[in-house]
Amino acid sequence: MSFFKKVAASIGIGSAKVDTILHSSSYSQGEEVTGVVHVTGGNVEQSMSDIDIEVMTKYLIEEDDKKHYREVKLLSHRVTNSFIIKAGEQKDFPFSFQLPLDTPVSVRNVSVWLHTDVDIEKGVDSKDNDSIKVVPHRWVNNVLQAVEQIGFRLHEADCEHAPYFRRRLPFVQEFEFRPFSSQYRGKLDELELVFQLEDHGLEVIVEVDRKARGMFGWLEEMYNDGERLLRVYFDKVELESGQKHIETKLQSLINQHAG
Rank of each mutant, 00 (worst) to 15 (best):
G12N: 01
H38Y: 13
A162S: 08
L60K: 10
D52F: 14
R78P: 14
K17S: 11
T80W: 04
E148H: 09
R70P: 01
I84K: 14
I254A: 00
H155T: 10
L99I: 03
R78V: 15
S47G: 12
I53L: 11
P94Y: 00
A258W: 03
Q46E: 13
T40R: 08
V36A: 01
L191Y: 09
L101P: 07
A157H: 12
V44A: 05
S126G: 13
S111N: 12
V134I: 14
H245S: 13
D235W: 07
N224A: 11
D65Q: 10
V18F: 08
P136S: 01
A162W: 06
H38T: 07
H200K: 10
F152T: 02
S28V: 04
G14S: 06
M1G: 05
L101D: 08
Q173L: 02
L60W: 03
E220D: 07
P104Q: 08
D119M: 02
A9V: 01
K17H: 06
I132C: 08
K73L: 08
V110A: 03
L75D: 11
K17L: 05
L230Y: 09
G12V: 01
K187F: 12
L144H: 03
R70G: 00
F93K: 01
T34K: 10
K91M: 12
G259M: 05
L239R: 02
V124T: 10
T34C: 07
A9F: 04
D189E: 15
F152Y: 10
R153V: 14
